[in-house]
Amino acid sequence: MKKIVALLIALFIVNYTFAQHENHQPKADTAKTAAKPKSPKMTAMAMVGGNHVHIEYGSPSVRGRAIWNGLVAYNQVWATGAHHATWIDFSQDVMIQGKHIPKGKYGFFTIPNNKTWTIILSKTWDMHLADDYKQENDILRLSVKPSKSKKITEALTYEVLATNDKKGKIKMSWEYLSVAFDFENM
């Protein structure tokens, strides 16, 4: 009888251990069969001197659509990305067009227009698109002229470009347009 009880206990332990272990096994790789997101979450980052500049954004693609004053309306605040407001994080204080911007994370918004764009850094960075955007939270507004390219940028793309150890540029490109602004580490 003791042998039967011991055998039953041993079978229970093996069965229980197997069931627990099975829950921790890797799942089948469905990356090849799963649909890729149409606006994947992307990052752009670089070290400019000792300043780590990091941008997170949703990257929609043109996919044959009319972008400017079509998908993206002119003269309205745009989250400058998809699904969630784009944000930028400076690990050091910077100067942008003579304005001191303390280190930290900021919402990055734009107001596109066919001749000039307004670039906005907002104290509020964690929001769904521009749904909760409030102008009173702006820490910076500046005007820039968009530049045109003959080559299409299919997916919205940000770049953090180091000019030297102290200066850099933030550039956003999509379709045939780009906008950019310079910053300087303090």
Rank of each mutant, 00 (worst) to 15 (best):
H24I: 06
H24L: 15
Q25E: 13
Q25C: 04
Q25A: 10
Q25H: 07
Q25T: 12
P26M: 07
K27N: 11
K27A: 12
A28H: 09
D29Q: 09
D29N: 15
T30R: 11
T30S: 07
T30W: 09
T30Y: 12
T30C: 03
T30N: 10
A31S: 15
A31T: 15
A31M: 11
A31D: 13
K32L: 14
K32P: 00
T33R: 05
T33D: 05
T33V: 15
A34R: 13
A35E: 13
K36I: 06
K36Y: 07
K36Q: 15
K36R: 13
P37L: 09
P37A: 09
P37I: 10
P37Y: 10
P37C: 10
P37N: 08
K38V: 12
K38E: 12
K38R: 11
K38L: 14
K38I: 12
S39N: 11
S39K: 02
S39I: 01
S39F: 08
P40H: 10
P40M: 08
K41V: 11
K41D: 10
M42F: 02
M42N: 07
T43V: 12
T43F: 01
A44P: 06
M45E: 15
A46I: 03
A46D: 14
A46K: 13
A46P: 01
A46T: 08
V48F: 03
V48I: 12
V48N: 01
G49D: 10
G49C: 06
G49I: 09
G50F: 03
G50D: 15
G50V: 05
N51Q: 08
N51T: 13
N51V: 07
N51M: 08
H52K: 15
H52W: 09
H52G: 01
V53P: 03
V53Q: 03
H54Y: 15
H54D: 11
H54S: 06
I55V: 14
I55A: 02
I55W: 02
I55M: 04
I55K: 01
E56C: 00
E56I: 03
E56L: 02
Y57G: 03
Y57K: 04
Y57C: 03
Y57I: 05
Y57L: 04
Y57F: 13
Y57N: 05
G58W: 05
G58L: 06
G58Q: 06
G58E: 08
S59I: 04
P60T: 06
P60G: 03
P60V: 06
S61R: 12
S61M: 10
V62A: 02
V62R: 13
V62F: 02
V62T: 11
R63G: 00
R63M: 11
G64N: 07
R65D: 06
R65I: 05
A66S: 10
A66H: 12
A66C: 00
I67R: 04
I67N: 04
